[in-house]
Amino acid sequence: MRVALAEDGVLFREGLLMLLRATGHQVVCSASDGDELVALLSTQPADVAILDIRMPPEPDGGLITAERLRAAHPEMGLLFLSHYAESHYLMRILEIGTERIGYRLKEKVGSVDVLTDTLTRIGNGEIVIEPVLAKRLIDRPRADKKNIVAALSARELEVLGLMAEGRSNIGIAGQLYVTPKAVEKHIANIFTKLGLHLDTAARHRRVLAVLTYLRSQRTEV
């Protein structure tokens, strides 16, 4: 995969470049801030841009850079890396896009399996959400939804967790060693219990529905 990288921490940037190259990816360019990366990518194509959220232009240059990249190259995948898995940032990322986009903790992409899985899924048009964050949203949903989430079966909770990570039905089936048909059934049950409308045709909208359900603020007046 052709990858571009912007990260202001030298140690982390160099480490990730080495790992990307070793695992067979082509690093088309790397930069220490977002503006530099946008300039570099105006002349050379990339499949995925990896962005540190907290980098120049301060304070969260990764998000601003992503907005500019998505506008200029709608087909380019975006992977955000952060030292923090915050639902605040997740919601801002989802405003930028819900396809070909991902958010992972920095230390997690040190696993070759995680790095490969993340880049492959983004390349396939999927959304990838840090499991640490997905799990936190499921374990601690908004208080008014706690009882409803708690009423799900253990299996349904597992499926909900994998949905919140952005995984496709086939992806969920693979993780749980069950058939996609069984996953569909679980998802239908979950959506009924949560009172959400099921639209299997649009996976990213399904992820959004689940995340919004777990996270959404009470109506603000």
Partner: peptide
């Protein structure tokens, strides 16, 4: 904490990933 220790530890996980790959 963020720019120092935490960033170094995150970078260590990348080095370990390289070791895993090799």
């Amino acid at each position: 904490l963020h720019d120092g220790a935490a960033l170094r530890i995150s970078a260590l996980t990348l080095r370990l990933g390289l070791l895993w790959h090799r």
